[in-house]
Design a protein around this nucleic acid. Structure first.
Length: 376
DNA sequence: AACCGCGACAACCGCTCCTCG
DNA sequence: TCGAGGAGCGGTTGTCGCGGT
């Protein structure tokens, strides 16, 4: 049992790479492209396993790698995507230009995971650690729905990652003669979400479609569809037609205009909106789902307006305020900083609110991705 | 100065997935 | 259709540097 090692390990060097080895690998790939990784070490004159060469190249030597500290925006992107996708570092990495999955994984394990834990958020589930409280208002079911959404999004990201790789390789091959590496879409997700030629790859368009339908249903009061979002990807869903059969009432996210000006300086787009959470006071039936989820506001022309600046601002606040040990912040009545911690509240409302806003922010991130151009 | 503990990050290992004959 | 081999992913380990004692 067990496969033969990827290469003959006898006489092969392990451990840290020397500058000379780096130079050899770099020179070879620039000259010839990597081709078969297994064959590369011999051709390049390296006493290394092909796998080791590939890792060294993809994680360190590749010219399009950004090194150094992660920005706050990168941090929040990692956290939000991790909430959606879990430990799927390669998928997360496709949304962080110039960062490798290994780097993101390490950063998560050494920094972000601990920070979330310190904030009282389970870094695995992204829920408050006393999650039993959440079942009270059905929040756990919303999380279940988000998981379902994440399944779709995961599939979408896989396909997207392939496209990204392909385009990257095409670009690289023009510069470095790298050849013969373009991945062809082949997974189920690729077949589910084939690329649309001639159009930029829009991130997260599954959720966009879901959002549209939900919003429309909420808008026309026809929100009692019988589909079950939690059922499985067999839910009727079409990216081209934006057709989704769902769901039942539970709660809704509602965007509201505020008069505040945009002061975060990050994007300058649609930054005047605030978000509030309205728990539905009843459940239509036992089927979990949500009907009136408005992750972005849609005007009469069906144009979406997405809050991003406030989110970044709040998230930055949250991260910074919680990087210390007990740096609690007060909740403001207008929701401006309701992502922060509220020491004066009882635990229930505190965690409920935190969790609601946490997931609201994830949805915000998802929506902001819809407007942003592809990162690559 | 030496030792120890800890954090950060690079690299390895084993598994799964994908491709191709 | 199936199996072998290659590539990629995620978890884990190893190594190094730094601060404290």
């Amino acid at each position: 049992m067990g496969r033969a090692p990827c290469c003959d390990k006898v006489g092969l060097k392990k451990g840290p790479w020397t500058p000379e080895e780096d130079q050899k690998l770099l020179a070879y790939i620039e000259e010839n492209g990597h081709g078969s990784w297994r064959a590369l070490p011999t051709k390049a004159g390296l006493q290394r396993c092909g796998k080791s060469c590939r890792l060294r190249w993809t994680n360190y030597l590749r010219p399009d790698i950004k090194r150094g500290k992660f920005t706050v925006q990168e941090e929040q992107t990692i956290i939000q995507l991790h909430a959606l996708l879990g430990n799927r570092w390669s998928a997360i990495a496709t949304h962080l230009p110039k960062r490798t999955d290994n780097e993101i994984k390490n950063y998560w394990n050494t920094h972000l995971k601990k920070r979330l834990a310190k904030m009282g958020i389970d870094p695995v589930s992204h829920k408050p650690k006393n999650a039993t409280l959440l079942s009270i208002d059905g929040q756990s079911k919303s999380v279940a729905n988000l998981s379902h959404m994440a399944q779709w999004e995961s599939a979408r990201l896989e396909a997207e990652a392939r496209l990204v790789k392909q385009s990257r390789l095409q670009c690289t091959s023009q510069n470095t003669k790298q050849v013969g590496l373009a991945d062809q879409p082949s997974t189920v997700s690729d077949k589910l979400f084939p690329p649309v030629s001639g159009a930029p790859t829009s991130c997260l368009d599954i959720l966009k479609a879901l959002n549209r339908v939900w919003s429309n249903k909420a808008g026309n009061g026809n929100g009692n569809g019988n589909g079950d979002l939690e059922s499985s990807p067999t839910s009727t869903l079409s990216t081209t037609g934006g057709v989704v059969e769902s769901s039942t009432n539970m709660f809704e996210f509602v965007s509201g205009k505020s008069s505040r000006s945009c002061d975060d300086g990050t994007t300058g787009e649609g930054c005047d909106e605030e978000w509030e959470f309205k728990a539905k006071d009843h459940m239509v039936n036992s089927t979990a789902g949500f009907n009136g989820i408005n992750m972005s506001s849609i005007d009469n022309n069906n144009n979406e307006h997405i809050s991003r600046g406030n989110f970044l601002e709040n998230f930055t606040d949250l991260l910074l305020s919680n990087s210390g040990t007990s740096n609690h912040r007060n909740v403001q009545a207008d929701g401006e900083s309701n992502i922060g911690l509220a020491p004066s509240r009882d635990n229930n409302s505190y965690y409920e609110e935190n969790n609601k806003n946490y997931w609201n922010n994830i949805l915000n991130l998802v929506n902001s991705s819809l407007q942003d151009p592809p990162l690559f």
